[in-house]
């Protein structure tokens, strides 16, 4: 899973589709923010067709991570400064 491995992500959904990942975040995470395709969080890009969401739960980020061969994963990672950056986005 690339460099985000080092952040020890919790895998919430595995080998799903980007649409199912979107629906999971929309339905299960109270606070979520829409981001554009290609939005960079940690060292990965959010990949897919809009709308794409990143959830915030406590200090954690919950977001879709797409791999070319294994589909999309929904992962949960301590958000650090990314939480504030996400909340600060204009109009979101």
């Amino acid at each position: 899973m690339g460099c985000i491995d080092a952040l020890k992500p919790e895998i919430i959904l595995s080998r799903t589709t980007f649409k199912e990942a979107r629906e999971y975040i929309r339905k299960n995470i109270r606070e979520y923010h829409e981001v554009e395709p290609g939005y960079r969080v940690f060292d990965v890009h959010i990949i897919g067709v809009p709308p794409l969401y990143i959830g915030i739960e406590g200090e954690d980020l919950i977001f879709p991570y797409t791999k070319p061969c294994h589909g999309t994963f929904v992962v949960k990672i301590p958000g650090g400064a990314e939480v504030a950056r996400l909340r600060a986005r204009k109009g979101k």
């Binding site: 395709p37 067709v49 061969c69 589909g71």
Partner: peptide, 28 residues
């Protein structure tokens, strides 16, 4: 995404859902 470069044409090979996701990203 960083506007460092772009292309005139883009061909995306797709045989699974991830391929659709990458193509949708390129469209955007």
């Amino acid at each position: 995404t960083g506007k460092v470069r772009d292309f005139d044409l883009c061909f995306v090979f797709i045989h699974n859902d991830s391929g659709i996701a990458y193509a949708g990203t390129m469209a955007y």
